[in-house]
């Protein structure tokens, strides 16, 4: 399950490239999302810490996940456009 069947079936090359880069970025986000949900489930006490600006980790991490989603989407798009 490493390459999309679209690639092996000779679908458009753009689809293949999108899948390769996209899957790497996808797994990065899965780690971030999974890590945050893991904290919520297992160590919610850590989310009460206030590491920056007097704001707790729960809010900072939540906002960070939203920003990260956009950041990765942008990386994917810019990476494709400069290729």
């Amino acid at each position: 399950m490493t390459k999309p069947t679209a690639e092996r079936d000779g679908s458009p090359a753009a689809t293949v490239r999108a899948s390769r880069t996209g899957l790497a970025l996808f797994w990065i986000y899965v780690l971030l999302y999974g890590g945050f949900m893991g904290l919520v489930l297992v160590r919610p006490d850590l989310l009460a810490l206030r590491p920056f600006g007097g704001v707790n980790l729960a809010i900072l991490a939540g906002l960070g996940l939203i920003v990260a989603a956009f950041g990765l989407a942008l990386v994917s798009m810019l990476g494709r456009d400069t290729r």
Partner: peptide, 13 residues
């Protein structure tokens, strides 16, 4: 977060 799946896995195919 669901949009990450849409963008990286589903959109173009």
């Amino acid at each position: 977060a669901g949009w990450i799946v849409a963008l990286f896995v589903i959109a173009e195919p």
